[in-house]
Design a protein around this nucleic acid. Sequence first.
DNA 1: AATGAATGAGCCTTCATTCAT
DNA 2: TATGAATGAAGGCTCATTCAT
Lengths: 234, 234, 234, 234
Amino acid sequence: MTDERTANDQSPWMPFENRRRARDEKREAVLRMAVQVFLEQGYHRATLNEVAERLNITKPALYNYFRSKDEILFECWALGQEQVDDLIAVINRSRQSGLGKLRALVHAYAETMATDFGASLVRFDPRDLKPHNAEKVRAAKRGIDLTFRRYIAEGIADGSIKPCDPKLAAFAIAGSLNWIGHWYQRGGSLTPDAIADEFAIRLTDGLARRSVKKASAEAAPAPRTRKPTKGENR
Amino acid sequence: MTDERTANDQSPWMPFENRRRARDEKREAVLRMAVQVFLEQGYHRATLNEVAERLNITKPALYNYFRSKDEILFECWALGQEQVDDLIAVINRSRQSGLGKLRALVHAYAETMATDFGASLVRFDPRDLKPHNAEKVRAAKRGIDLTFRRYIAEGIADGSIKPCDPKLAAFAIAGSLNWIGHWYQRGGSLTPDAIADEFAIRLTDGLARRSVKKASAEAAPAPRTRKPTKGENR
Amino acid sequence: MTDERTANDQSPWMPFENRRRARDEKREAVLRMAVQVFLEQGYHRATLNEVAERLNITKPALYNYFRSKDEILFECWALGQEQVDDLIAVINRSRQSGLGKLRALVHAYAETMATDFGASLVRFDPRDLKPHNAEKVRAAKRGIDLTFRRYIAEGIADGSIKPCDPKLAAFAIAGSLNWIGHWYQRGGSLTPDAIADEFAIRLTDGLARRSVKKASAEAAPAPRTRKPTKGENR
Amino acid sequence: MTDERTANDQSPWMPFENRRRARDEKREAVLRMAVQVFLEQGYHRATLNEVAERLNITKPALYNYFRSKDEILFECWALGQEQVDDLIAVINRSRQSGLGKLRALVHAYAETMATDFGASLVRFDPRDLKPHNAEKVRAAKRGIDLTFRRYIAEGIADGSIKPCDPKLAAFAIAGSLNWIGHWYQRGGSLTPDAIADEFAIRLTDGLARRSVKKASAEAAPAPRTRKPTKGENR
DNA sequence: AATGAATGAGCCTTCATTCAT
DNA sequence: TATGAATGAAGGCTCATTCAT
């Protein structure tokens, strides 16, 4: 896999092929390959040469699309951030209790962490960026954190969540989720969806005024509201 | 602050001063300064020159104590790992339920994460080490993970922990804790102890067959067995 | 002299000039300059900076053509070795007595020793090479030695050379020739050709069953037996 | 052998032993070890640390006896040169034909080349010395060369050697001999004496007006049928 | 748009040498 | 005399970035 690479699947510069696709398509292809290489080897060990070669182009060609290595890094991050922004926007528009929103966020965020661009949100180091961009990243991180806190605070207010310190609770939950970006390996025994399901329960159950099981249990019928996570109790 | 540095507090090579302290003391001083610089700037951006200068010595002098930059990195990690090993050993020797051990581990591990050497366990990248050492690191990480899982499994067996998937539960808890190493800043509003207290409850409450409060509540009087965490409800 | 250098004569990177010559031409130009600098200053004292500067380029530019300093050293050697291989191949194809071949080899080898690449065969130290290449060098040296011995043995067999120990005789002759690489200075009073002529006679006359002069003078039978040298006929 | 080293045989700084031997003895011990290391690894690759360690002392201790690495190199050379000077002095005082002297020189020089200090005469690079010493070396080399030429010229004058160009003949002979310093390995199949014997004949036979055998044969009584033993006439 | 070639900047590492003890 | 510790000097190598084509 490392040798064949996935160049054939991803590169718009197919050798001996038409090279007329749109500029943005190529730009994105660079980002997809770059994020992969950066995650695989680490930003500093990864060279633009490696990125370029896997795309069947040469290093200077990258400079047609990006001004610098750190700009590529930033754009990778930005794509991941966009996903999170969208996902938060959707949840914000939904009508749910604080706990519901929190769970939705945990689930969606967990899934995002299992993607390359999602992982780039937590695996890349803002200090590698120009101050200008580093600040954007930090602001966005703060934004996500605040979202977690807000959902928790909402939950406390609407009674769906037990009183607690939203700040630390948010840290705990976000930490768990962010860590997924560090250990998740595509092709492992756990699917992103399974992980997301499990985390959505696990991380919020302690906060819920009524735990999932109890809630459903008390609510009489509904023997099981949640499907058993693959591998549970294994 | 960058200029004054904290050299005066940490360096055994006080300029124009006695230089007779023991070799091991100096070796450790190098590590303390190195881990600080590495955490502050990131391993790749940090230069040995910077480390040396802050110690009032020159770069080659470092080579009296270490063979290479990556060996320094490894030794930093090793010091952190030692802390964790010790801490696990103590807990292993204790007579507690699985849940008790888990909470003890969470608490101690959280505190460790708030130290430089502790943070180095999760902020440094094993890929920067020589394969030889990288393997040691990976093995140790596996060891910690297994410890978390073991305590959970014990807890399930002894009834102190609700049935769950020990693997994912361990990931969730360890993730939360590891993340502390990324966000904790000395001098912030939260003390390591406060964080540890909170996390020890927060991360295990969802797992406990009986939550802290409920347990104490049901246990008749004993309105509260745990001290209010500093800053709780803040 | 050090300042003017001979850059103008040898460098394809003429400053402010066309820079379009072929890559191989440049690669070779690097080798020509490198062998010169290495011989002039010795491999260890010579720096790549010096080589580059004389070529009107910068040090890293050399890495476009070679992977490391020792690879350059090896390639210099290889070019000299090629010359010798060619020269041996020609002699091997010729129809001559063993003595004839030996003389031809001595002559051609002597001339080679008076060239930069030829001298590099004996002035460079294989221990400066990577084991991989060092082994190639050693093997090639053995090959040359064996060629000398073979010609001598052939000569003994065909009667053109007096019985003697081919091994030591080869050492003696090759030593004389190799030493040329150490003392020959371009621009001295002796031309390579004159040296080669003289050595071809001098080094083989003692071996010839009939010396050059005697053979032509006496032009007669005059068989002679001499006692075999210790170790001869081994 | 490399591991045990020969420290125990050569070092006056035997650990846990009396350390009171004379300064000059130590100085010489350093030189004996240094020349060995320098020959074994090459002057530049060899470090003073290595030399010191093999002597069971530390690097700075060497500076009690020598001012610099290159001074050590020079002294090694000087010791070898002394041997050659002595040997030439003896031959100069002897009453022999030019050919006789030449043969004696060849024999003795060949044997010297098989010693460490002798090899240092031809394996070390004067350019590694300070100009001051380098000049001494060059002068001495010229001296040796002139001695060869002188003996040859004497031989031509006294009729023991065929007319020839003394300069080139000297180069040829000295080259052969010098090369011994490059290929001779202690413990090989050839003893220094055997090599010297063979070279004394081989290298001069071509020059002799009458070859060894012829001379003895024609000279009727054959006062000496046996080769002159090593050091004979010395 | 793409490339081959080149550069500038910088860092790790080595080692002879010095210094205080 | 010997040593541990430290330094200064230097060189090889890497790589992001630029330039001319």
